[in-house]
Amino acid sequence: MKVPALLVRDLSKVYDNGFQALKGISLEVEQGDFFALLGPNGAGKSTTLGILSGLVQKTSGSAEVMGHDVNKETSYARRDLGVVPQEFNFNQFEKVYDIVVTQAGYFGLTVAEAAPQAEKLLRALDLWEKRDEPSRMLSGGMKRRLMIARALIHKPKVLILDEPTAGVDIELRRSMWDFMQDLNKAGTTIILTTHYLEEAEQLCRNIAIINHGEIIQSTSVRELLGQLNTETFILDLTRPVSDIPEFDGFSVRQVTADSLEAEVTKGQSLNGLFAELDSRGIEVRSMRTKSNRLEEMFVGLVREDNA
């Protein structure tokens, strides 16, 4: 049986100022998974990732990367792990290429040994032309990609990405999604935190939601979305309507003169909603979900946990 890519048991962390960031969380991520760790700001996501990568000292519990305890078999655990932090953490005066090959050196690869992988990554992440520029000259998106290249230079089995697409424009975000998906298909286990729930829904197979230092949900994205009881749709109408009558079984309210908001609960069909609209002579020009489905679920779960 394969060892889990990540195994966390009763992990807790109390900072020096007394703040308890983690209250004994347990997690398991299988090899090859694309896993999302979600949670509001300050929930404990970065602390968890920090303990795994060696930047935060745990208070109690255990964490393993590819079967290696991060505190007892540190060297092996770190060789299997690549880390892309939330904040830029490279030397602003060093050249792009030097940053990547220097990191390779910290994993035992000489400049000559790292050169092919460095070129491959910098080309794949569209940074090859910038390789001789000091990193401070890069745009925000390029800096994020540089951190990804740096994290992958030693070909880790597990890649941790802490909000990798924060502040990145949509086009670039999508190209980064493609890159991450290709990486995952090639066998790298990916664990990411993100505030873009669309990102988690698009990319991840499994998910854990953390709030106030505790895991409140850990399941597959499909199963989680299956728990969603209602979905809200915005309907744009071809003609304005003045008065919205009662709909049989559906909660519908008017947003503007030519748009409606309809809640469809689990078990109801959209055909039913359209039949109701049709019978009232209301013609729909276009339709979209009010918010991302996972976002609705996430907000609901966190609200419930906070209550």
Binding site: S53, G54, L55, T74, S75, Y76, R78, R79, L81, V83, P85, E87, F88, N89, F90, N91, Q92, T102, Q103, Y106, F107, G108, R150
Partner: peptide, 18 residues
């Protein structure tokens, strides 16, 4: 100190360097 201040010391902290 500059590495600490720019947080690039984290490059070493996440590596197997003793």
């Amino acid at each position: 100190f500059s590495n600490k201040w720019q947080r690039s010391v984290e490059e070493l902290m996440v590596s197997p360097v003793r």
